[in-house]
Computed example of a mutant assay.
Amino acid sequence: MEEKILTGRLYDVQGFSVQDGPGVRTTAFLKGCPLHCPWCHSPESQAFYKQLSWMSMRCLGVDACKQRCIKACPKNAIELGVTQKDVKTGTDLQLIHVKRDLCDNCGKCADACYVEALYLCGKDYTVDELVNRLLQDKKFYDRSGGGVTISGGEALSQLDFVIAVLKRLKNEGIHTALDTTGYAEWEKIAMTMPYVDLYLYDLKHLNSEKHQAVVGVPNEVILDNALKLAENGKKLQIRIPVIPMFNHDEKNIRDTAQFCKRLGNAVEVVQLLPYHNLGVMKYLRLSDDPVAEATLPNDAYIEKLKRIFEEYGLPVTVH
Rank of each mutant, 00 (worst) to 15 (best):
I5R: 05
T7P: 06
D12N: 15
V13P: 04
F16I: 14
F16T: 00
G23S: 06
T26Y: 03
T26N: 01
C33Q: 05
C33T: 10
L35W: 14
C37I: 12
C37T: 10
C40W: 15
Q46D: 04
W54C: 03
G61N: 01
K66G: 03
R68H: 07
P74R: 10
P74W: 02
A77F: 00
E79A: 09
V82L: 10
D86Q: 04
V87Y: 13
V87H: 15
V87M: 10
V87D: 12
T89M: 01
L93S: 03
Q94I: 10
L95D: 04
H97N: 15
C103G: 02
C106I: 06
C106P: 12
G107A: 02
K108T: 12
D111V: 13
D111S: 05
A112P: 08
A112F: 07
C113T: 13
C113A: 03
E116Y: 14
L120G: 14
C121D: 11
K123I: 13
K123R: 12
T126M: 00
E129C: 02
L130G: 07
L130T: 08
V131R: 11
N132G: 06
Q136D: 12
S151P: 14
L159R: 06
L159N: 04
A164T: 13
L166C: 01
L169H: 14
D179A: 11
D179F: 15
G182Q: 01
E185Y: 04
K188P: 07
M191D: 05
T192P: 15
M193Q: 11
L198V: 12
L200V: 11
D202E: 04
N207G: 06
D224A: 06
N225E: 00
L227A: 13
K228F: 04
L229G: 06
A230S: 02
E231Y: 05
K234I: 13
P241Q: 02
V242Y: 08
I243T: 00
H248S: 08
H248W: 13
D249N: 05
T256L: 00
A257P: 05
A257T: 11
K261H: 12
A266F: 03
A266T: 01
V269W: 05
L273W: 08
Y283V: 05
L286P: 10
D288S: 13
D289K: 10
A292N: 12
A292R: 15
A294D: 08
P297Q: 01
Y301R: 08
R307E: 09
F309I: 03
F309R: 00
G313D: 03
V318S: 00
